[in-house]
């Protein structure tokens, strides 16, 4: 390690694996056994991996849309880092889904060649952000929920899911801290920032109910010790949100009584938000199938 150039001293590694450009990625789960644990239906496990993977993939894309549009250069990079973390989680989960499914679909096939009705992400992930306050409100809700989920999932009976979750816990802990920092800062800031942060928290409230409703797949796998029952996450979620809102002098958004309990994102019922995301996400892969760069 050289001390002549300070930055070179920090980056002086012969580790090209840290760099990734273009196509040609290898299977992130290469060498990992594709066994399905006892008591789990392969179809259910595939669907569950798609649910958690699609949450990460779709929100990652929404966060990427902030690149070049964030209010400060430093925050643009922070949001891009979070998007990359989520993309990494999506790759592992979609790869696991493809391996368990056993139909020859890899992460790319699942990301680029499924239609909106086959996506299983919650609606919270696909919505567009009206402004930066909407972004951090949504990110706070998502990260608080996902951290509670991954924390429990790291004890899953499926060792692959448990490992993916344990890796994600460290990442999402930071996502939650970043989002909470901004929610408090804007909530407890000026009159204008307080109003816009309050509006943003109210805007995501109708999308939180779905996070805690168990899809039949989740209920069955939770019974088998593979998945997490999302309903069990509510107390931790409520406690964290109450703490952040109190610090930011914000009112905890009330659950929306009009929140439809019917089929939503987990069932493949999506809004215009997902169509917009997939239009961008899948355009190149679909118009130039098999292309590399």
């Amino acid at each position: 390690m050289s001390f002549d150039d300070a930055y070179q001293a920090l980056t002086d590694h012969d580790d090209d694996a840290r760099w990734a450009y273009g196509t040609g990625f290898t299977d992130p789960l290469a060498g990992v056994p594709t066994d399905v644990p006892d008591g789990a239906d392969p179809g259910d496990l595939t669907a569950y991996c798609l649910m958690l993977g699609d949450d990460a993939l779709v929100l990652s894309h929404r966060l990427q849309q902030w690149v070049t549009r964030a209010p400060e250069l430093e925050d643009e990079l922070a949001v891009a880092n979070i998007a990359l973390d989520l993309l990494g989680q999506a790759r592992l989960l979609l790869s696991r889904a493809g391996a368990v499914e056993g139909a020859g679909r890899d992460e790319d096939a699942l990301a680029y060649h499924r239609d909106a009705g086959d996506f299983r992400n919650v609606l919270l992930a696909e919505r567009a952000d009206a402004d930066f306050a909407h972004l951090v409100a949504r990110l706070l809700v998502f990260a608080t929920w996902r951290l509670a989920l991954l924390d429990r999932l790291s004890a899953s009976g499926d060792p692959v899911l448990a490992a993916v979750a344990a890796k994600g816990v460290k990442e999402v802990t930071y996502h939650r801290e970043y989002a909470a920092g901004w929610v408090v800062r804007l909530g407890d800031g000026t009159e204008l920032s307080h109003r816009r942060m309050s509006d943003a928290m109210a805007a995501v409230a109708p999308l939180t109910g779905e996070l805690f409703r168990a899809h039949p797949v989740e209920a069955r796998l939770a019974g088998a010790g593979i998945a997490v029952d999302p309903g069990a996450l509510r107390p931790e979620f409520d406690a964290v949100l109450a703490q952040v809102c109190a610090a930011g002098t914000l009112t905890v958004p009330a659950a929306d009584p009009a929140d439809p309990a019917g089929p939503a994102g987990r069932h493949g019922v999506h809004g215009d938000g997902l169509a917009a995301v997939l239009g961008e996400l899948q355009a190149v892969a679909r118009s130039l199938p098999g292309s590399t760069w």
């Binding site: 430093e74 925050d75 990079l77 922070a78 880092n81 930071y174 801290e177 970043y178 920092g181 800062r185």
Partner: peptide, 8 residues
């Protein structure tokens, strides 16, 4: 915030 940004 500076520590967060430095990390990022």
């Amino acid at each position: 915030m500076a520590l967060h940004h430095a990390r990022d």
